[in-house]
Each structure stands twice: as C-alpha cells, then as structure tokens.
Write a protein that binds this DNA or RNA. Structure first.
Lengths: 168, 168
DNA sequence: CTAAACTTTCAATATTTATTGAAAGTTTAG
DNA sequence: CTAAACTTTCAATAAATATTGAAAGTTTAG
C-alpha cells in the first residue's frame, strides 16, 4: 500500500472509531491528521486535507485543545496559528480515559449514589429489585471509576507491567 | 425520593449513558426497565412504561437479545412473549465489554496492523512520523484488546481482587 | 381451515447532531 | 489609526439517526 492511501485509511478509520463513541467524526479526523503530521499544521492545511469548512475546523480544533490533545504553536514572523497533537501515546490514552470517565462514568455514579437512598418499602418486590440492581451497579461502576483513577496517575511502564502480569 | 421518581431517574440516566457511547437511547432505557423489573415484562408493558411505539420496542428488544443482555421467556398458557434481563452485574459488564471490544477495538486493530506494512520511504519524514504513530498505536490498542480478553474469561472475584491490589 | 392474537417489517417522518459559510470580531504591521 | 490578515461565532442547512404506525407475516386455539 502506498503512503497516500495508507494515510487516507488511517484518518478515515480513526474517524469511524471516534463516532463509535460519542466523538464526532471530524474531530477524530482532525486528530488523526495531526497525529501523523511531522510538522505543525495551519487551519488552512487541515481544511484542505480533510475537505471541511473553516468553521468546522476551528470548532473541532478548539475542542481538541480543550481536551489537551492538541496545542497551538506560534511560528515567529507568521500571523497564522499552527496546531500540533500530543504524540505520546500513553499520554493520549490517559487524556481519552479522563474524558470518557468524566462523561460516562462520573454522572452515572452520581445518580446511582443518589438513588441508593430512595424511599423503599421493604416488603415491595419492585422496590427490592430496584435496590438490588442499584446497589450492584454502583459497586461495579465505583470499581471502574477507581481503576481509571489509578491509570490516570500511573506511568505507563508500571501500569502495563502490572497489568501484563494479569494477562500472561 | 419516592419510588416512581427514582425509577424514572434511573431509566433516564441509563438512557443518557447509553447514548454517550453508540447505544441508542431507547435500547438503553428498555434495558434499564428490565434490569429493575422483578418480573418478566411483555412488549405491551414496555411500550406503555416508556411511551415508545411497538416497532421501536420490538427492534430494541431484538438487539438486546442479540447482545444476550435480555432473553425471551414463555409463560405456559399465554401467547404473549415476556422478556427478562440478565441480572448478574458482572455478566452484564462482560457482555458490554465484549460488544464494545468488537465494535471499537477490533476493527481499529485490524486496520492498524494492515497499515504497519505500508510502502514507506525511509528518508521521508512524513512516512517516518506515520510509521511511528501507527506502531505506537497498535501496541497500545493491542494491549487494551488483550486486557479485555482476560476480563472476558475471568470470574469477578479473581478479576477485581487482582485489580484492587493494583488500586489500593 | 380460519380468525384472532400476537410479532415483525419498513417506508415515511421526526428528531438529533454536524457542517457550512458569511458576517462579526480580533490582532498586528505599517 | 486603519486596513489587511487572520480567527471566531452562529443562524441556516444538510446529514445521520431514531421512531412511528400501519400493513404484512406468523402462530395457535378452536
């Protein structure tokens, strides 16, 4: 496979992956493009390569910057802004884990904990089933939450060497 | 908080969680409803409780059954079909992990591995950056894939006791 | 066999989400 | 200061996704 084709495929796959969770396709594609770029890219170049509008590029770059996956870079003597992606894969993984935790785990955990002390009548089977499910779920989700916390603090070699002991 | 309100909140939160990954809201809500139901429910009851159409209920129940999160139950002497959710939370977690792996991890891993042997010119910095990123990503995604595999085979007490040693 | 009871399908429709692009805003060179 | 070079915003529009509901299909009781 030749380079331009490989590049296209990577950008497109990363875009699909993104939209399989809640990330929008363009944001993931901009990210993919920056991930493999050997140089900072300008908004112009990104719009051009991905055939997206200026507004779209701008908005998704802003989101990527918010996530801290991308940062602005200024070239002295040039008025344009350039963009670079964080290249360290472990750092990227942690950023994504952090955002997914924030969006997926934390809100649910909060609700589950509130629902734990709802006003139950002990003898009512509906109430019993509800309590059981909520309790079980909040245990599990709580464990997931803690696991991600460890990952967020850990450094890669420690995390995976420990995990790979599990795996082997 | 009173029961009906707690129930409503749980169903609605679970629905939101679902749509934060690629699951559609109704499917997640049907699942939530069945999770807390002390009895098998008929399609009618589900439609009624969630105010959704027959077609919608049918389609999402079918999907839940495909995922093996829900199964049909026949009541002797009744022509209706009834539906029950798997109640074991660890089993549910594994089913969801299995599906997310299938949809999110595997396709990307496949593409990354294909892209590893693209036709690179060693001296071209674009090609170098590409190779590096693809290599790093496929390492990481490969590790994630293996981790999920372990979880799929493990039983809960073993998995979490090992994991919690990590965590503590 | 056939009519009632139920389930499934799917084209039409509604809802949600993403994208565009032109106008407004900002910054800086001169 | 002001005009050119650039970035941001956001209402309009397009695209993707989910939902409806009525018609078609299936099963079973009698």
């Amino acid at each position: 496979m030749k380079f331009p084709e490989a590049k296209k495929q990577f950008i497109q796959s990363w875009g699909t992956l993104g939209s399989e969770w809640g990330i929008n396709r363009s944001m993931a594609q901009v990210h993919a493009l920056l991930l493999i770029a050997p140089k900072p890219l300008s908004a112009e170049e990104i719009m051009e390569e991905l055939s997206i509008s200026r507004g779209n590029a701008n908005m998704n770059l802003r989101d990527l910057i918010n996530w801290t996956l991308v940062s602005k870079e200024l070239v002295p003597g040039d008025r344009k802004e350039y963009f670079v992606a964080e290249k360290d894969i472990w750092e990227i993984a942690r950023i994504i884990a952090r955002e997914r935790k924030r969006r997926e785990i934390e809100p649910v955990l909060k609700v589950l904990n509130q629902l734990k002390d709802f006003d139950a009548a002990k003898s009512n089977p509906e109430h019993q089933a509800f309590s059981k499910t909520i309790g079980d779920l909040s245990d599990l989700v709580g464990k997931m939450d803690k696991t991600v916390d460890v990952m967020l603090k850990a450094d890669e070699s420690w995390f995976f060497s420990t995990l790979l002991k599990l795996i082997k």
